[in-house]
Design a protein around this nucleic acid. Structure first.
Lengths: 339, 339
DNA sequence: CTGTTAGCGCTTTCAC
DNA sequence: GTGAAAGCGCTAACAG
């Protein structure tokens, strides 16, 4: 049976128990190396005995830092974002930081609200990861404001850059170029670009990479099939493509959702098996390897990218510099584009 | 060009600008109704003018509450967990709470570390959502410890219950029962249960639901095909099933990952089209509707469940009571088990 | 290497 | 309905 839970031990309790001053206890936690081995042990013992754990609110208030970053994602329910979140969370944890999860749900209004509201002041840094176009005056102002307050901001897309923000973005032009070239190199033609809406800041890059690859191969009669980034829209668009006069031999899907739509349409048309029509998605997620046919992709390794983002942000916060592994986008060949 | 960023306004600045005391400013934020309309307006004006935003660290230190909860998930890269996280984040936000994301990555060690470390003291509550068996003495102790400190804990699975923890768990026995019965009602037999490992605390419930449905239908020659919860393992297991003497006419997949493996194997065997072998997954995620064939599932509406969890936890923290919508698991009929 | 001394910015009785 | 005062638990100079 539970009894009066003893009020959690504070630093003063530990100091008393260890026969030292509060300052020393504090040092044991903030810069252990400046404390004599012996003293440190005494303190650690007391800490363990009293089950002491430093109060983070007090610590933040005093130090002005919270060891917390906010991760704003376009849609955490999407595999791309959840895998990125995972990597960010792990990297942050490794450096002693916590991650506040904020889901934008593709809404600018939500972003504006979040940016204005509480989180920002209790957070040392922010990662903004969304492909949606969210460049509004309100957002820009909020970001500058946050930076004036000393909050570091890392942008995951080319938009909104300028101020003092850090930017770490994938080269989507190259992604689409690689994807398209891969199909062209197999001798496939026509190859269509599926997906791409004005709501996305990435679409123009994908389009231009696609066009560059086509141009290099000497093809001018390109097929652009813009659609929302939804599976259903992509399915319909693919159906139309298949029924049109220019039967494609290859499809570059802007995202995995879009690729799923294409796969459905292909399956419905009895073209599900790989070989006949090559399919590549411009995004690498775990799911790609769980489908049948397994989906060829061009994309970044999200665990590396997420870690790089977290590290870069934390470096900016701490004024440190960490090496990050290369996470440039690359082709991952699977069944959906098998020769 | 940016100049010396003025130190962020504090409550004292606002008080001065509005010609009131700090206490009044504080009240405007914590219990607006106790402040005269007129005074409140004056204060709000000053707040807007000075761009004031309360310092959360100071507030937490003084009040003892942080308006933050931690969400511990087995694997945020999994659609189930990321959809749940999304719902939790939204519901929490609606009630003025922030969500700290902690990914367990299926590791007990990580859980133990997280439970011990920093987060816990800066957090008003914790949601533990993992199907992995994480019942160790260390974990139990850490949970009790956290509760002694006043942190509310909500468990998403039957494990670890006991103490003062809240428990909000899905009835997986019923899930598997419904899934199995659905296939049996179509006259299919044999129906196999695919997936189920000892690492999961849910497996036994699924198994027992499956067995109950079989028993009710008078079948005793059940087919249990336990495998890890991985797509590859499920694919192999399904292949074996198809090659065995007891060719199944239906498969109950323990999870969507497992179902993906089954779908691959079926596709490879030329049985991809629905009709021949019915497939149902014991988990409802968005992905189910993006596949071909669309995947029939039995599961909870994750947005409702996540909201219910967040609300229940926050209710426990605040001593309030909120209505939550019903999120009992139900069959969602799609193509993969089409008659 | 360790102790002393000031607060960080806010909430919260308690009076008025 | 509003103000005055007293810290919450910790860190960061500054001495010694």
């Amino acid at each position: 049976m539970t009894v009066t839970s003893p009020a959690p031990a504070t630093m003063i309790d530990v100091a008393r128990a260890a026969g030292v001053s509060r300052a020393t206890v504090s040092r044991v936690f903030t810069s252990p190396s400046t404390v004599a081995e012996e003293t440190r042990t005494k303190v650690m013992d007391a800490v363990a005995r009293l089950n002491y754990v430093p109060n983070s609110a007090a610590r933040s208030l005093r130090s002005g830092r919270s060891s917390t970053i906010a991760l704003l994602v376009g849609d955490i329910a999407q595999p791309f974002h959840s895998q990125l979140a995972k990597a960010v969370a792990h990297a942050a944890e490794a450096r002693g930081y916590s991650v506040l999860l904020c889901d934008l749900d593709h809404s600018i209004t939500r972003l504006e609200r979040l940016l204005d509201s509480l989180p920002l002041q209790g957070v040392d840094g922010v990662i903004l990861a969304t492909g949606d176009n969210v460049d509004t005056p309100h957002v820009r102002a909020a970001i500058e404001d946050a930076e004036d307050r000393g909050t570091k901001i890392l942008l995951g897309t080319p938009q909104l850059a300028g101020t003092g923000t850090l930017v770490m973005t994938t080269d989507y032009e190259s992604v689409a170029y690689q994807a398209t070239k891969h199909l062209l190199d197999q001798g496939r033609w026509p190859v269509a670009l599926l997906g791409g809406s004005t709501a996305s800041v990435l679409s123009p890059f994908l389009k231009s990479g696609y066009l560059r690859a086509c141009a290099e191969a000497g093809h001018s009669d390109v097929i652009l099939a813009p659609t929302e980034y939804s599976t259903d829209a992509a399915r319909s668009a693919t159906q139309e493509l298949l029924e049109s006069s220019q039967q494609p031999e290859g499809i570059v899907a802007s995202s995995v959702s879009v690729a799923l739509g294409a796969m459905s349409a292909l399956a419905d048309a009895g073209l599900g098996a790989p070989g006949r029509i090559g399919l590549v998605a411009c995004e690498e997620v775990l799911l790609a390897d769980q489908l049948r046919p397994r989906l060829t992709t061009v994309g970044t390794k999200l665990d590396l990218q997420g870690a790089a983002m977290a590290d870069a942000l934390i470096d900016a916060i701490q004024g440190t510099a960490t090496e990050s592994q290369d996470w440039a986008p690359a082709l991952i060949l699977r069944e959906s584009s098998a020769g």
